[in-house]
Design a binder for these strands. Structure first.
Length: 205
DNA sequence: TGTCCGATATCCT
DNA sequence: GGATATCGGACAT
């Protein structure tokens, strides 16, 4: 299967579906002529309006989360704790403020450069967290609202033919959202590839 | 204009 | 495991 970039339709589906479909896809940032990126291995869904943990809970619409109200396939990135960026992809259609937070990558492209950006030699510690992967791929607020599906985009997602077996997708509660109350802190809207029992994925032929 | 606080990472013990 | 760094946005005043 040839490598191909994800198109708009990929994102215009229910957010829980997109969150899982992103596992095994490759996030690539072409920065200063070199490719930085890796395979997405952990995501979280934020389903606007009804989701107390989402910035867009109850239809809240601010300058920061405005992009969430746009069409799927755009980048929602913002800073937390004055230190770290969080990368999200807008999903669903217009006026449905939903998105997927990218929590972890398995580095594949430009690993040396990523090590430099992260001041870190251990490959396993390059992109295993939402703030870390932004630093590794040199992502910042300048990418706010970027269209991942735009022609000639330097920031996009590739399908490299990795087939994720449904049984390898694990689910659990989201991280760091206790403020949202017991119910929303508990829903299993975090997804990751399980790699403990043999291969988490297999390459299609 | 002021105050409050977070969808975390890191360093320290 | 616990403290804390550090800042922009949200919302109140």
């Amino acid at each position: 299967m040839p490598t191909r970039r994800l198109k708009r339709l990929f994102f215009l589906r229910p957010t829980l579906k997109v969150s899982q479909a992103l596992l095994g896809k490759y996030l690539i940032h072409e920065y200063k002529g070199r490719k930085l990126g890796g395979m997405i291995v952990e995501t979280e869904a934020y389903i606007g309006k009804k989701d107390r943990a989402a910035h867009s809970y109850g239809g809240r619409r601010t300058k920061r989360n405005e992009i969430e109200y746009g069409i799927g396939g755009h980048v929602y990135i913002y800073m937390v704790y004055g230190l770290h960026y969080q990368l999200n992809f807008v999903t669903a259609g217009k006026d449905e403020p939903e998105c997927v937070l990218i929590r972890a990558l398995e580095p594949t492209d430009g690993i040396d450069a990523m090590k430099k950006f992260r001041h870190q030699k251990d490959e396993r510690n390059l992109a295993n967290g939402p703030g870390k992967l932004c630093q590794a791929l040199h992502l910042d607020r300048s990418l706010y609202g970027h269209d991942l599906c735009a022609k000639g985009s330097k920031f996009y997602i590739e399908d490299r033919g990795v087939k994720v077996l449904p049984g390898r997708i694990k689910k659990g509660p989201r991280i760091g959202i206790d403020y949202a109350g017991p119910y929303w802190a508990k829903v299993h809207w975090r997804f990751w590839l399980d790699r403990k029992e043999g291969k988490a994925y297999t390459f299609g032929c």
